[in-house]
Design a protein around this nucleic acid. Structure first.
Lengths: 351, 351
DNA sequence: CTGAAAGCGCTAACAC
DNA sequence: GTGTTAGCGCTTTCAG
């Protein structure tokens, strides 16, 4: 029993079994060209010594680590975690390990050390799972930091020459606002996320577009910007309600903010959805348990992560073909509307 | 400009600079014993060639990877993610990389392949961040899977011979129930988490203990078991309310379930906290925006993760001393009570 | 079916 | 200051 002993090497196994390291290697890798007798003897020794092959020595010689680098941000929020959850399960399934880096803030632009660190550990590909905010994507076409491995980007505006997997936030926004229009609401306001976020801009653009298609004129006092948090939505909602008293429905850019809006409306003695309808975005697990249950746009962030892993592995495999020309791809996942009580003024609910 | 070219090696840099690989190594590692002239020449070449040192080759020779393995579960929930967030930031600060594995379910007992995989990648230590559930810790004292690197366990009952960092759930439960007793509530029920979880049992034990210390007799119909989710709390609360109609306060084992309880109470036309008080556990970001804002026990899961990293690194460092006897340590973090409106029947709120 | 030699990219130890 | 040698643990290649 190897109690806190040194790591046994393939050499030790070989000499204990009276064979060459080659043969041990063959056994470990399940190669067919070993006699059954030798195989079982070696396997016994491996067990006895507690031998575990070194994946990094293998990576070094094979120039392939079966490891993916993941760069994320904001794990304390549920969105990025759900995505990471999708990444881990797809990676596990595909037999890849994951090297994780979290940026300390969303805006951080010290990209190069992260990239170098991952590349130095011989990752076969990188998933850049930090959302697009401000100019934090300015480096993607910077040739000086180009790496000989693929990088797949999540949650950003599709771009020429890079591979991207995103959820279609614009479509999600359209689903939300169209639903409110169809329910007969006339004065539909918006509480947006921080507008340096691409996703927040997409959701807001959808609100504007659907409203003008419905023949309404958007005014500046019909919306307020907040920062995704429940806390930020309180003053935002107060401001919006004061400057737009006719408001009878609100498209809130995420469910956390919708919770605070619900509280505000409830405290004013207004009824949801009779006086004011609310539609959120995300479909967090709690949304169905708000009072009343929240209509919201469901985005499958788990799938976002899983697809990212599959795509980056696909690119890695393709690049093994010498004469393969790497081409970038863009995938947009489609969100869906989940109708609950917070927005159904009319009795005939279309589920 | 190295556009998707091969990884340049130290040898190529050396010959391009007309020096030995040793000298390049010295420059890369910032050793002082290189002339300024040589250093700058080498640095220029490194830039030009886009050379990035191979961390795994370095790990191989130094027998030290500056990488930690993290095994987690349930990233789609906010608790484990907050802990992981603490782990990533502390690891980053300490200069360690992270290899992440997520168990597909909390109960999973295919421990060995995970451990071997991490060990095979030469991690210097492991943080086992899966909560203790059922017998999913039965292996910790199994000598046959003992590794020559330290494993630090999170969120489990302290045990002889292993290092553990946990939050004191029992104390947290005491804070919650004591508060309700002090507020003058007489019929304090409990909705527990799944009782195969150590943390759920601790919270429940605290409820029982404080109640009997207050001279109350706990009956079986005073509590119901649920499974942490808002969804599970709906039938649980219905059952509890029916079987215990005198109930005037509830200690709910987490904030998600407390949300559903809030909704239930609200829909029955009962007032919180006048008719029924609610205290949760976790202090998720949204708890302050429930209607009414939720009194809850704050556990600093971010810190839990950060402390885990610091501790495991401490053990790694200590083990470098030949004659150091590894001793296990137990750290218990202390939760705090956050009093909000959902439990303050008396006007004089002690903040 | 099995083994010997070479080397992945790097650094420790020692020489000069 | 700088170079040489050896080797971390493994797999590839080729020989037998």
């Amino acid at each position: 029993m190897p109690i806190h002993s040194k790591r046994p090497t393939i050499k030790e196994v070989a000499s204990a079994a009276g064979v060459s390291t080659q043969t041990v290697s063959r056994v470990v890798n399940g190669r067919p060209d070993v006699s059954d007798e030798t195989r079982s003897r070696v396997q016994t020794i491996i067990k006895d010594l507690g031998y575990r092959p070194s994946a990094i020595a293998r990576s070094l010689i094979q120039q392939r680590s079966y490891t993916l680098g993941v760069v994320t941000a904001g794990l304390k929020f549920i969105g990025p975690s759900r995505t990471l959850n999708g990444i881990t399960s797809a990676a596990e399934e595909a037999g890849y390990s994951l090297l994780l880096k979290e940026m300390s803030h969303f805006h951080a632009n010290d990209i190069v050390p992260r990239l170098n660190s991952l590349y130095g550990m011989h990752v076969d590909g990188i998933i850049w799972a930090v959302p697009e905010i401000g100019d934090n994507r300015s480096w993607v076409n910077d040739l000086s930091i180009d790496l000989p491995i693929p990088i797949l980007y999540l949650a950003m505006e599709p771009r020429e020459g890079v591979s991207v997997v995103s959820i279609n936030n614009y479509l999600g926004g359209r689903l939300a606002v169209t639903h409110l229009v169809e329910q007969g609401y006339k004065h539909i306001g918006h509480i947006s996320g921080p507008l340096d976020w691409w996703e927040a801009r997409q959701r807001m653009a959808a609100w504007k577009d659907v409203m003008s298609e419905a023949g309404k004129t958007i005014k500046d006092h019909h919306w307020v910007e907040a920062n995704w948090s429940s806390a930020s939505a309180v003053p935002a909602m107060e401001k919006l309600y004061n400057q737009y008293p006719e408001i009878d429905a609100i498209f809130v850019a995420n469910d956390q903010m919708a919770l605070a809006v619900t509280k505000f409306v409830c405290e004013r003695g207004l009824r949801i959805p009779q006086d004011i309808a609310i539609v959120g975005f995300d479909d967090i697990a709690e949304a169905a348990y708000y009072t009343p249950p929240l209509t919201t746009v469901r985005q499958d962030q788990h799938k976002l992560g899983a697809v990212a892993v599959q795509e980056v592995i696909k690119i890695i495999e393709e690049n093994k073909n010498e004469n393969h020309v790497e081409e970038s791809r863009t995938i947009m996942l489609t969100p869906t509307l989940v109708v609950r009580e917070s927005s159904t003024r009319q009795k005939e609910v279309q589920k």
